[in-house]
Nucleic acid binder design. Sequence first.
RNA 1: GCGCCCGUAGCUCAGCUGGAUAGAGCAACGGACUUCUAAUCCGUAGGUCGCACGUUCGAAUCGUGCCGGGCGUACCA
Length: 569
Amino acid sequence: MLSENLYGDRKNTKDMKEKIRQIMLYAAEKAHNTEQLPSGDFPDFVIEEPKNPIHGDLSCNLAMLMAKMQKMAPRKIAQILLDHTDDAEGIIEKKEIAGPGFINFFIRPAAWLPVLRRIHAQGDDYGRSDMGKGEKVQVEFVSANPTGPLHVGHGRGAAVGDTVANILSFCGYDVQREYYINDSGRQIRTLGTSVFIRYQQLCGKDIPLGGDCYQGDYIRDIADMIRNEKGDRLLSGDAEEAVVLCARFAADFILSGIREDLESFGVRFDRWYSEQSLFDAGKVEQVMENFRKTGNLYEKEGALWFRTSDYGDEKDRVVVRSNGQTTYFASDIAYHQDKYERGLERVVDVWGADHHGYIPRMRASVMASGRKSEQFQVILIQLVSLLRDGEPVAMSSRAGEFVTLKEVVDEVGKDAARFIFLTRHYESRLDFDLALAKKKSNDNPVYYVQYVHARISSIMEKARERGIAPEDWQEEYLSALTEAEEIRLMKALSLYPETLETAAAMMEPHRLSYYLTDLASLFHSYYNKHKVLTDLPETTAARLCLIMAVREVIRNALSLLGVSAPEKM
RNA sequence: GCGCCCGUAGCUCAGCUGGAUAGAGCAACGGACUUCUAAUCCGUAGGUCGCACGUUCGAAUCGUGCCGGGCGUACCA
């Protein structure tokens, strides 16, 4: 039987760990007040799920951590703490002291039931939190140069950046997604040159394509488009103008392709920020002028240097070369200044790991304008190796033989691609096997998780067919949930909010993928052992309530990962 | 040389702001479909957590030093 306070208390929304933590804190204070514990100074302690179920549902290490400052044996402190616990809600079935001084709690099975009520009440919002307190955070990701199509590596960055943004947003941060377009500088000029040479070749001229030019077939395709539009006219005009025209045309065309590819990968940006616009608005010049005034810049050997070494970089860096051209760093400084001036409190850049050497100088420039180091964070994405059946797929962008993100998404699907990118810590290198990604088996966790959603949807459909309507599912029936697998599922469901908060705090989306796989595994086991639609109406109602909660959380988490939750598979 | 990342089961990887007997999937072997979807489940087997010291009640986790792999060390982007 369920007690009234477990069941009827509307404020009963704190998760189990937090409840135990409060009980322990209260016990510690009480023990100090009665002078059984000399010190009133309590260290940070953890409430965690022991790996071994023999140690209970939750475990607390407070007694061991206090041993030194209390000048007492951990087990003795544990006993004192236990003597002072006050379990007003009646959630604890058994508590014990174990090992060097752990305090283990065995939770009364029925005490997990409120999580179901909470999930049903909050629906899509279960797990949402205000931990971010509205902090304005920008996630800048992908930001690939518009000189060629996105490849798989960009895909990983896109999946991670997008999902980090989703998670932060769900956890109460005010998130903005931005793509920085490097549409200025030498590479764009090289792009123009490459296209113009192809154009001239198409017009019958025998001009070789230099080794430093972009070699991909798409360059010729673009040149062909220009020829269809302009005919041979560019041949007779000014060559410089022709290159500029080719560059602009090509960059615009490639960028719109990038947009489309990202769109079909489920990624959208709040803003596409052009590097060229920084120059056009005079912001690069302005920012350099400001830093000159504050003494952060100096001239040496004809070039202009930024004193990044004042802020931890190993040496100073050039912002204007002796030939008068600004470096990429210069516009990047201006760009980041602009971000903060727009009111962003924290800036997160998602970069390829090969750019890690760039972090100290970027951070230095941010700190030079008085921002705190923590206001600039970088997520470094490690390399993706593309395989097919374990064999490496050739990926030389120099020769233009790369496999594009679009090709991968077309072949394996958005869901599988995203999930695989998000099932590994981004700081680990990733082998992406195309054959594996298409396999509809356990090799491929995305189907494993989606299958849960489909299975539950199917059961719900069956329930409807049998005339079991959702509104008939009474909470009073929940006490029928007593199977070990049912308790395990409820425990897992109650872990979701803190999983999200950790994922947000550490900006590690893979935590969500692993959580999903765990939850899915628990469900599949349950499904194989117990029938949901039974002859007992109360049991059926209770189990439906449970699996609907599972479905809700699966759907919720998948949507944060940008993966669909199919009703049928 | 210096800096950063990685090193955990045969393979691919979780676990790393310290917690008790180190986990998952794949691959291997043996089982479960007349059932709400077998894209599933159950079981067996599989480990000096790269090595060595150190910190402490306790180390895969923290520190130092090695070893191995990758990346970076431009008046490139």
